[in-house]
Design a protein around this nucleic acid. Structure first.
Lengths: 165, 165
DNA sequence: CTTGATTAGATGACGTGTCAACTAAAACTT
DNA sequence: AAGTTTTAGTTGACACGTCATCTAATCAAG
């Protein structure tokens, strides 16, 4: 991938990746891919829930009892508005969340957990947290955890500064 | 998320995440999400190409001239067989790749790049590599890059050892 | 040689994410 | 107050990933 030998006919100014850099880049992409797939599988098996559904249930469960607005949910999760909207529609159909018009703003929706939603996340959370701990934290020393956090923060900060991400 | 206060009614054995751990976990998920979104956007804008299409073009471009078999491609990319199959169908419709029956095995397909495929990845590669470098490598010191690689390898090794991932 | 198991790959259904376009309610402007 | 602009949220089209299922070719016993 990104091989200058076959691809770089004359674009001398491009700073191609070294062998070590390619290793890190490959590892990062596989990590990114595999992480979400592992999460999804664990939740699907143990709780009949997708990773994104869990994320929404968890976010709403931490909101004040009157509910969260859909847009705030999008901000909390760093998701697109329409992504939230599509998912909420599906989750409402499964009776995991409820929506009612906000009193203060005629456009807004207040999202709350249904009884089934509460029951679902209560029973899913322990297994999910255990899986996260075993997958991410147990294999690393505390120092490594700190290094990882620092590195990722550097990357994300630089990206947001450039308006990307 | 994963809040013991509201969720842990009686499951005392679960090792919930500390505040620091929650930070790392949040950062990891946003990283994983944001990385692929940033890649996809850059490629869509500059080369009218999705991230997965680029990955396939790059992998096939490094294969021997007679082509790669679809299953080998899946192994190289660590992807599902059917994921590769679906994507190849779409890419063949766009005339980015070609497939012809393998001589040795009547079931197999030899995948090659079309002229348009070669042209596409040749013109897309410099911009893509530049974006990867600016996003991932420039914000980090070399020491940080090594720490990041080590940490991710630990996580992935532990996961594959447990049959996950 | 034939039967059963394995392998390569394709396919359909479904949930999902993204983009652009849309509706309707607020907020702002004059 | 009337018209304009923002804002909240929805919708439809499309690309994508996953799972289960399917077909056809190869391989392994017998």
């Amino acid at each position: 991938m990104n091989n200058p030998e076959t691809l770089a006919a004359g674009s001398a100014e491009t700073r191609w990746l070294s062998a070590e850099e390619q290793q890190l880049w490959l590892e990062l992409r596989e990590f990114s891919n595999g992480l979400s797939r592992t999460i999804d599988r664990q939740l699907a098996q143990d709780a009949c829930l997708s990773g994104v559904e869990y994320a929404v249930l968890a976010a709403v469960s931490e909101a004040p009892p009157e509910g969260v607005r859909s847009g705030d949910l999008a901000a909390i999760l760093s998701w697109d508005r329409s992504r939230v909207s599509h998912l909420l529609r599906r989750m409402e159909a499964k009776d995991l969340i409820g929506r009612c018009a906000a009193s203060s703003d005629g456009r807004a929706q207040e999202i709350t957990l249904t009884d089934l939603g509460w029951e679902t996340i209560r029973s899913a959370a322990p297994g999910h947290v255990t899986m996260v701990r075993e997958t991410i934290f147990d294999p690393l020393t505390v120092a490594q955890q700190e290094q990882l956090l620092t590195a990722i923060r550097c990357i994300r900060l630089a990206a947001t500064d450039r308006g990307l991400w």
